[in-house]
């Protein structure tokens, strides 16, 4: 029977029972958003939440996918069931996408119990900020741990992922200025671990020094988590060198989060962020409606030139907030 005809609840039961195509289908529904996605998020919210969520970010071509493949192998060989969410940008012109991350992962993960899902950013603003944590939760509920999210480290997507992850790994390469670029892109603030990948190339030691220096400087300015200094690991993802050290660093950060209130605090921040995004969406719909319907007539007055846009907006807001319109 085709999984397209099953309800979210039925799919959820099958996915938790280990059926991959049902899990695949659930992820499609989560990605689409809307009532089905909310139902699934509700179900997985109750079922899971114990797993570790790891974000891997960095410039295109840095070797993230290759590294993720090695991490998956290392983690699976240790007896765990890792999942990967590989996020790539959609073409702004066509809305389509070429999702090529599996090419770099398939070789090493073919023999292991891992679940890899490619996801395009698609156009929807704010949508990704819900789709990513939603997808992570479904994978978590299906028993995958850790869930690794790969994203290109630029712009909003990056921030969305940092918000969804417990541990964020920033991947840079040897070469003049890569670490400096990462700093400028704001990646220094979100990094819990740095990986200098392509350490088979000259300059890996310099990159490490650059990062150490920037950490020395940023330390004073007070990062969110005082007393934790991100580890820097050198890797050659193409042959797996350093992968075990990255996994160890991820585990160490997880242990660090487990001390005191840190993990709980991150999770609370994640929930708050999700609520904020959902509110933004809900209000966005109501704003669109208000502008279209013009219940107070102020918008018509403004377009006729009898009222300023600012005054019309204030009037519309008052009307919006005054109750069920």
């Amino acid at each position: 029977m085709s999984r397209r005809d099953l309800s979210p609840a039925a799919l959820f039961e099958l996915a938790v029972g280990g059926e991959r195509r049902s899990l695949g289908r659930l992820l499609t529904l989560v990605e689409r958003g809307g009532p089905d996605a909310d139902t699934i998020t509700e179900l997985s919210y109750r079922a899971g939440g114990a797993g570790h969520v790891v974000g891997i970010t960095g410039a295109p071509g840095a070797g993230k996918s290759t590294l993720v493949g090695q991490l998956v192998r290392t983690i699976a060989e240790a007896g765990k069931r890792p999942a990967v969410l590989a996020v790539d940008p959609s073409s702004p012109l066509s809305g389509g996408a070429i999702l090529g991350d599996r090419v770099r992962m398939d070789d090493v993960v073919a023999d292991h119990d891992a679940f890899i899902r490619s996801m395009a950013t698609r156009g929807h603003q704010g949508g990704l900020a819900l789709a990513i944590p939603g997808a992570v939760r479904v994978l978590d509920a299906a028993g995958y741990d850790p869930v690794i999210i790969e994203t290109v480290g630029v712009g909003q997507v990056e921030v969305d992922v940092a918000a969804a992850a417990d541990t964020t790994v920033v991947v840079v390469n040897p070469g003049w200025g890569d670490a400096v670029q990462a700093n400028k892109a704001g990646l220094l603030e979100v990094a819990d671990i740095f990986v200098v990948n392509k350490a088979d190339r000259p300059g890996a030691g310099d990159a490490r020094r650059d990062l150490e220096l920037m950490l020395d400087l940023s330390h004073v300015s007070g990062q969110e988590d005082e007393g934790f200094r991100p580890e820097i690991v050198l890797t050659t993802a193409t042959d797996g060198t350093g992968a075990a050290e990255v996994v160890a660093a991820i585990d160490a950060h997880r242990a660090h989060l487990g001390t005191g209130d840190r993990l709980a605090a991150r999770r609370r921040a994640q929930v708050r962020e999700e609520i904020r995004v959902r509110l933004e969406q809900l209000l966005g719909h109501r704003i669109d409606e208000a502008v279209a319907d013009d219940p107070t007539g102020d918008i018509a007055r403004a377009t006729a030139g009898d009222l300023s846009p600012a005054a019309a907006a204030t009037a519309a807001l008052t009307d919006l907030l005054s109750g069920e319109s």
């Binding site: 999702l99 490619s118 395009a120």
Partner: peptide, 28 residues
């Protein structure tokens, strides 16, 4: 296919029926 608005999950060379099925399931 990308330019026609589709999402292409690119597996590339040297695939087996098993690896393609695994990807098709996971990627829906």
């Amino acid at each position: 296919l990308r330019d026609a608005g589709m999402e292409v999950i690119y597996l590339g060379l040297r695939q087996t029926t098993d690896s393609i099925i695994a990807a098709a399931e996971q990627e829906d």
